[in-house]
Nucleic acid binder design. Structure first.
Length: 577
DNA sequence: ACGCCTTTGAAGAAA
DNA sequence: TTTCTTCAAAGGCGT
């Protein structure tokens, strides 16, 4: 059983945090040389090419060890499809990148994400935290506009529009802030969730201080300005909140949030009764609609009879009644998803490509090319997302969403895939093939493709600060220890001080010791027994100073070197149960 | 109209 | 305990 630090879940931050990094020599060096160096697609391409070559030359076992192996259907590997290339071909005009030089992609770094949380020492209760982060930032001119959840859904929102997702209205960074503004209307927060945020520790109500919030939205005009963002309208203007309402009004997926008092009534307005079943799923106890919630009627299968015709169109005949009735609560986004959300627009803007498959391949490469600290930010964000999600939807389980998507031809694939295939497929998976040499985006750094591909750097293994916790248990124990997905072989880094008994122990250790992994993160290579750090190590508990970009970075570098030859550090978070 | 593709990560189920 | 499967976002493409 996961250990709860504070019993309440407030101590999540305290528990969690261990940071470990996994290393790849090349990547490390590169990072050290130029942490912020931009990797371009060209590099990716080159790296890919190299990878392919290398793969063929190097032993499979070796490769397997060094590379993360994406879990994919073996089939895909058998017949790798180069979406990237294909997409490029389709794009006959305009070349891949708009800019030949491909300036790179300045990361819209989320300001020190850790600050808000770390400052408190632990993550505040989800609701509070969430509010803290979101509400203050929402600038809704005339909050009334959106806040009146009772008003009919905005015309631009059709019934079919998923309640949760409005990518175009989300600031690039917002995704990182998960259920953010999208979900909360700028209006006055619910009374129970009022801006008067209780201090997690003291319980004393307090208004979020700008300083606390700012870190999350450091989008200084200059920083952001560097990159013309497709979502520019969301970009905060100087002195103004990031989330200004679009001319047409604020399209908030969850107008209901704008309401103070009667959330339920609001909710009902936003969600039809059948759409919004009351607890456990539809709304959190707090009554806060969550972006993750998608009404079945809207997104999933239509409700029987009561739903709008459009909704019906989607539903296949006999639908599970119960499921339909339940709102669809989406899974919290993981670090990579958050990253993708943020960077997709940028990549699309840089490239003429629009196909997600191709874009995702690029993003995958970029992800690997990110420095640990950069990735750590996303892991941390993801961790917080999970925490928040779990707090908002205590009873929710990822399993709830199983089967909602149409099953793929798994069975057939499985049949096709024999043991051999699996084996071979794994090896093959190491390489992502999507970059045709000739059509790559030009990039200055194309010469060092290898770096991108850090052969061995499984993203997972990369510093992933986030503590993966079981969703359910997360409430109780945000940071649970879990073994790393096996599909991606990784190097395991022994964690010092930690009994290798099992991954589960890590959670306890983390909880018990305030900074077990911190030391790792900081670069103190601790040699621990065996537990592999397969998952991101949450470092929320770390002192802000340590988390400061500079310090953290340095630490990371240190750890990097120290670990350079050691195997990637994986974070183990598992419930002791 | 709907599913696939593609990526990584998290979580749960199955072995 | 390990392995495998599903889902999360996204949007063009194919059926």
């Amino acid at each position: 059983m996961p250990q709860l630090n504070g019993g309440g879940g407030d101590d999540l931050g305290a528990n969690d945090e261990m940071i470990s990094f996994k290393d790849e020599g090349e990547q490390e060096e590169k990072i050290s040389e130029n942490v912020s160096a931009e990797r371009d697609l060209d590099d990716v391409k080159s790296s890919l090419v190299n990878e392919s070559e290398n793969n063929s030359s190097s032993s499979d076992s070796e490769q397997a060890e060094r590379r993360p192996q994406p879990r994919q259907d073996s089939e895909s590997y058998e017949k790798p499809r180069d979406y990237f290339t294909e997409a490029l071909r389709r794009q006959q005009d305009g070349g891949f990148f708009k800019s030949p030089s491909y300036p790179g992609y300045p990361f819209l770094m989320i300001p020190d994400l850790t600050n808000p949380y770390l400052s408190n020492g632990s993550l505040s209760p989800s609701a509070r935290t969430y509010l803290q982060m979101k509400w203050p930032l929402l600038d809704v001119p005339g909050t009334a506009g959106l806040k009146d959840s009772r008003s009919p859904t905005p015309g631009h929102l059709s019934n079919k529009v998923p309640v949760v997702q409005h990518p175009h209205h989300v600031h690039p960074l917002t995704p990182l802030i998960t259920y953010s503004n999208e979900h909360f209307s700028p209006g006055t927060p619910p009374s129970h969730l009022s801006p008067e945020i209780l201090d997690p520790k003291t319980g004393i109500p307090r208004a979020p201080h700008p300083s606390e919030l700012s870190p999350y939205y450091p989008l200084s005009p200059g920083a952001v300005g560097q990159i013309p963002h497709p979502l520019g309208w969301l970009v905060p203007q100087q002195g103004q909140p990031m989330y200004s309402l679009p001319p047409g009004g604020f399209r908030h997926p969850y107008p209901a949030l704008a309401m103070n008092a009667s959330m339920s009534s609001l909710v009902s307005s936003r969600f039809s009764p059948h759409m919004v079943p009351h607890p456990p799923h539809s709304l959190h106890q707090t009554g806060i609609p969550h972006p993750a919630i998608v009404s079945p009627a809207i997104k999933q299968e239509p409700n029987h009879g009561t739903v709008s015709p459009t909704a019906h169109s989607k539903s296949p005949g006999p639908v599970k009644k119960e499921e339909d009735k339940k709102p669809h609560i989406k899974k919290p986004l993981n670090a990579f998803m958050l990253y993708m959300k943020e960077m997709r627009a940028k990549v699309v803007a840089e490239c003429t490509l629009k196909e997600s498959a191709a874009i995702n391949q690029i993003l995958g490469r970029r992800w690997h090319s990110l420095s640990r600290e950069e990735q750590a930010k996303y892991y941390e964000l993801a961790r917080k997302e999970r925490q928040l999600h779990s707090q908002l939807y205590p009873g929710w389980s990822a399993r709830d969403n199983y089967g909602k998507r149409k099953k793929r031809k798994r069975e057939s694939k499985q049949q096709e895939t024999t043991a051999e295939d699996n084996f071979s497929s794994r090896n093959k998976k190491q390489c992502v093939q999507y970059l045709p040499p000739e059509k790559m985006c030009d990039s200055p750094a194309s010469s060092h493709g290898s770096m991108l591909d850090s052969p061995a750097t499984p993203s997972a293994a990369l510093a992933s600060p986030a503590a993966p916790a079981a969703t359910h248990s997360e409430q109780a124990q945000p940071l649970s220890l879990t073994t790393k997905p096996e599909g991606r072989p990784q190097h395991h880094f022994p964690i010092p001080g930690k009994p290798s008994s099992s991954a589960s122990s890590s959670s306890s250790s983390s909880s018990s010791s305030t900074q077990p992994s911190v030391s790792l993160a900081l670069g103190s290579p601790v040699s621990q027994s065996s537990p592999l750090l397969s998952r991101p190590i949450p470092f929320t508990s770390l002192p802000p100073s340590m988390l400061s970009p500079t310090t953290f970075h340095q630490a990371a570098l240190h750890s990097h070197h120290a670990l350079l030859q050691s195997q990637p550090l994986a974070l183990v978070t598992k419930s002791t149960d």
